[in-house]
Write a protein that binds this DNA or RNA. Sequence first.
RNA 1: GUCCCCAUCGUCUAGUGGCCUAGGACGCCGGCCUCUCACGCCGGCAACACGGGUUCGACUCCCGUUGGGGACGCCA
Length: 601
Amino acid sequence: MVHPRQETPLSRVPPWAAMRINKMGKTGQERHSNPTGLLMPVRNRASLQKVIILPMTGDALEENSVYNDHKLNGCGRLLAHPLPPIGPVNRYQNYCILFQNRIVVHDRTNRERQPETAVPFHWRVIMTVRTRFAPSPTGFLHIGGARTALFCHLHTRRVGGKFILRIEDTDRERSSQEAVDAIIEGLHWLGLDPDEGPYFQSDNTEHYLAAAHRLLAEGKAYRCYCSRETLDELRNQQREQQIKPRYDGRCRSRTEFPADQPHVIRFITPAAGVTAWDDQIQGTIRFQNDELDDLILVRSDGAPTYNLAVVVDDHNMGINLVIRGEDHISNTPRQIHLFQALGWAVPEYAHMPLLHGADGSKLSKRHGAVSVLQYREDGFLASAVNNYLVRLGWSHGEQEIFTMAELEQWFDVRDLGRSAAIFNLSKLLWINGHHIRAADPDQLLPDLLWQLEKRGISSPDRDLVRAIMPEFQPRAKTLVEMAEKCHFFFVDSVVPYEEKAAKKHFFQAAPEPFCALLAALTALPVWEMAAIEQSFRQVVADHGLEMGQLAQPVRVALTGTATSPGIHETLFLLGREKSLKRLQEGADLLQKTPTPVSEKS
RNA sequence: GUCCCCAUCGUCUAGUGGCCUAGGACGCCGGCCUCUCACGCCGGCAACACGGGUUCGACUCCCGUUGGGGACGCCA
């Protein structure tokens, strides 16, 4: 049985066909049989790498020569050269040209044939997916933004595309250099460095204004002189009437448009009809055009607005896939109108579900939506944060733990679910623990050293830290926790002991076996694991004890706490000098304190 | 209020009409391992929002209701 999705008519094969096929395990290319004269939409020239025509027979088509196409008069002007074919091509039969935003495939000799009798041939389209992450530098990179960037990055990796960083700083009041730096550093930490950029919208103001003035000249935009007060009043009235607040277009009917009086430039939104697109995550989304008002393109201070800047940049930068949060869905029809008014190709859209806080609303500062760099501070691994974020809305069988390499191979934005996910710290912790355990100790070393230094241990012994790491990897969910747990290795003395541990495990111990162990270890010729274990077991056996009866008080003496790696390992790693010193301190304390067993009753 | 989107265990998810007595993961509870703490292993609790259709058959398709979210700026 053929699934409906596979029945897409060839004439409607989307430009990201290459990507879709890729998902099936191919290499980003595929053959299709087409009738001749097919118009295949290509979203944006910049995205087009090459088109390869593979007809059944014939000679090679000449490369780089210009072919005029008279069949398409009225559609626009010829923009492109023929695309280089590979394989034998009959120059009088099949060729293709890039015409505006379409690839036109022709078969001259068969021009008069009916489509059903036309000789089919194969084509391949290889596109470069270009997507962008476009944060506004009004604050740090938070976890939701990081997720968007991650999805952009992963998706482009799989299809060999480009991931572009664009800083949307058209609001100069609220933008700051600190925020720009924080965003770039945050992305870098997560391993999401862009392939291109950062580009700054503040560098492109002239392009936006040129586009706005072109629309003005073409009668697709107009000057609006309404004051903010007028607009506020209008909005309030509309809210009272319980209708959607929007500009009523009153300045459209003006007869005078003096350019020297304070005004904004508004876009003339189509009054009727429907604007729809096939969202790669959400499916088809439709808006009635009469729901939309005339949006502002240029502010009264002459600065362009977001919607204008986005459209101009997406076009100029050759963006053909926009991956962004679903809070942008309502901007999309407006942006599509602008693309159309400017005669530009509309990109594909993928609106991803938002990340929510525990209360189920959009993640914000209120939820402690802190900078991603705070997660580094808190001892999380970038790979774990990425792993966690990608599982919010995406899955791959029953696998939970992923490496970046796996994600770059498997992630496809079209596999994302459509419902919002709630951020859940305990699962992040679990994943982080996994990544810590799986990590190469050498890779963790710089971060753990950093965490130790933050805890006041100046220049910790690098070799020692490296040596103890494997003991602590399974015992810590974060590097902060790891630093806490191995802290005792780096201090001069652990006295006084942690109260609870001392009371429960230390002061109840008998001094004799304790001192016997001290003596046995002191007598050891070499400080080796096997020898330490041997001595330990001997003392335990000699005094007729259980392991724990000696191990626990020793552990307290060594670490000041009731928990640590295995007691032999701890002794060995702590080293002869420190171990014996701490055992001696312990022995002194035990002998000074006349067994206060009765205290507990 | 209007428009748009969403809806499976507490949370993240699998599920594309019969493989579902609904699978996995986190968390939680119990156990095993054990010198402590972890790790690991075994087991348990726990969900298809509701109501109508369509169908021999609905978690899956359609409609409605309810609930949740988003948008409605001279912010992005």
